[in-house]
């Protein structure tokens, strides 16, 4: 039952992330087109690719196939987590620049941000080596009761919280003050996604106590939060493509 829930939610995430990333990269109507990766908004395309990769390699069949190539047992999980964390880092940098948040820029962008990502990736690697995981198991679910795996999972959640935390205030402010209604909606979606993600990090001790069976339920929270953030970003993309700000916000003197 849990396996099927996991596969369904991962598949839905793949369709959403893969579809939107593919659209962003290949659409001829968007200004960036196929050269998206070379432009500032290419950060989002890169985020989409990394996040999609993280979800693809987490699919049980792909995971097993990858395990035959990766030299370290369950090294695929390390690859998936690194992809996910780098995607979160790109998202953080992108939003910190867009919302012009001083705090977020100080903590997420530049050497501090790179160092945090490096430390988190190193922590994930060390805890994976420290854990006893002889058989392939996506997200290390089969070994969830091992302390090293618990720390491994917690590092990923803590890193996500580190990136999203400083962005909460500017996004919340924009979700109330953005003069464009569609912009407010988009920021609200991103804000909800961030809050859910942070809530999972804070509720991690509860997740540990609930046992491995509850993992999938908590994982669903992460999937919903990712979907909210991606849909929020997509809403901003629609607003830009349709030039909603120029159409909806009137600066004309005419009262007709």
């Amino acid at each position: 039952m849990n396996d099927s829930i996991y596969i369904i939610s991962v598949s839905l995430m793949l369709i959403l992330l893969g579809g939107l990333t593919f659209h962003r990269l290949t659409s001829t109507r968007t200004p960036e087109g196929a050269r998206a990766l070379w432009r500032p908004s290419g950060r989002l395309a890169l985020m989409g690719i990394l996040l999609t990769t993280a979800y693809v390699v987490s699919l049980p069949s792909v995971y097993t196939m990858m395990e035959a190539i990766v030299p370290l047992s369950n090294g695929t999980d390390f690859v998936a987590k690194c992809c996910a964390m780098t995607a979160v880092a790109f998202l953080g940098v992108h939003l910190a620049i867009a919302y012009k948040s001083e705090t977020a820029l100080r903590w997420i962008v530049g050497s501090r941000g790179a160092m945090a990502l490096g430390i988190a990736a190193l922590g994930v690697f060390i805890t994976l080596i420290a854990a006893d995981t002889p058989e392939p198991s996506p997200r290390l679910v089969a070994y969830a009761d091992q302390p090293a795996v618990e720390v491994n999972e917690w590092i990923v959640l803590a890193y996500t919280a580190y990136i999203l935390g400083p962005l909460l205030q500017p996004i919340f402010r924009d979700s109330r003050r953005n003069p464009l209604r569609f912009g407010r909606l988009a920021s609200r979606l991103i804000f909800i996604g961030f809050v859910l993600s942070l809530a999972r990090t804070l509720a991690y001790p509860l997740e540990l106590r609930a046992g491995p069976e509850a993992f999938y339920v908590f994982e669903l929270v992460t999937h919903v939060s990712t979907a909210c953030v991606v849909l929020g970003l997509w809403a901003f993309a629609i607003a830009r493509r349709r030039q909603l700000a120029r159409k909806k916000l009137d600066t004309d003197l005419s009262i007709e």
């Binding site: 908004s41 919302y99 912009g183 901003f236 629609i238 830009r240 600066t251």
Partner: peptide, 17 residues
């Protein structure tokens, strides 16, 4: 104010979208 609101909304949608 309206001009500033338009500039803000346009800049944000351009940067994020």
């Amino acid at each position: 104010q309206r001009k500033e609101a338009l500039e803000y909304a346009e800049q944000l949608t351009d940067l994020i979208g």
